[in-house]
Computed example of a mutant assay.
Amino acid sequence: MASNDDIMLALGKLQEGVDRLRVDFQDEKGMAHESRAVIHQRLDNQALQIAHMETTIAVSGQIDAQVRGEIQALKETVEKNQGIVTPAIDEWKRMKTLGVGISGLIAFAGLTIGGIVAYMSETAVAAVRHWLRIP
């Protein structure tokens, strides 16, 4: 049979083992708590980022819609102004074509008169000499 000292020694070893298990479980429990806290912090940060992204997307959508509306309004204004200005531009083109035609006609008339004068100059000189009786 085991002596009382042996039993007390065994109980002391058992108590030491239980104390070590308790410390190990406390350490594990603390590390698990820290790990869960980090995971929850990351989830909270991710939720904030998602909310910020949703807000950004919503604002971007509204800005896009506003820009599309402004572009449509500008397009309508340009088309309206183009309709108003088109007759004036067409008239300007017609006047420009007419001016080029008149300039060409004046140049042609000048060349013709110059050619006639050059051709007739000898005859004119002879007629003037005859009229003035210059030999």
Rank of each mutant, 00 (worst) to 15 (best):
A73M: 11
I63A: 06
Q62M: 03
K13G: 14
N4R: 11
S35N: 09
L43M: 13
R36Y: 06
Q49H: 06
E54G: 04
E70S: 04
L11C: 06
S3N: 10
L74S: 11
L11Y: 12
L14Q: 14
H52V: 04
Q72N: 14
H33P: 00
A10E: 14
V18A: 15
D44R: 10
K29C: 09
A47K: 08
T56I: 04
E28S: 10
A32C: 06
A73I: 04
A65H: 07
Q62G: 08
V38H: 05
D24N: 07
V59P: 00
L74C: 03
K13W: 06
S35M: 05
I7E: 08
A37D: 14
R42H: 09
I7S: 09
E34S: 10
L43Y: 02
Q66P: 00
K13L: 10
I63S: 05
R68T: 05
A73Y: 03
Q72D: 15
E34A: 11
M8R: 14
T55G: 09
A51V: 04
M31L: 11
R20Q: 15
L74I: 07
D64R: 10
V67W: 01
E28V: 08
T56S: 12
D44K: 13
I39W: 03
I39M: 07
F25Y: 10
V59H: 02
I39P: 00
R22P: 00
Q66I: 02
Q15G: 06
S3L: 10
M53R: 12
Q62S: 09
G12I: 10
L9D: 14
Q62W: 01
D27C: 01
I50P: 00
F25E: 07
A47W: 01
G69K: 02
R20S: 12
I7G: 02
L21M: 13
A65V: 02
D19W: 04
D27F: 01
L11M: 15
L21R: 15
E70A: 05
I50K: 12
H52L: 08
Q72Y: 03
V59A: 07
R68I: 04
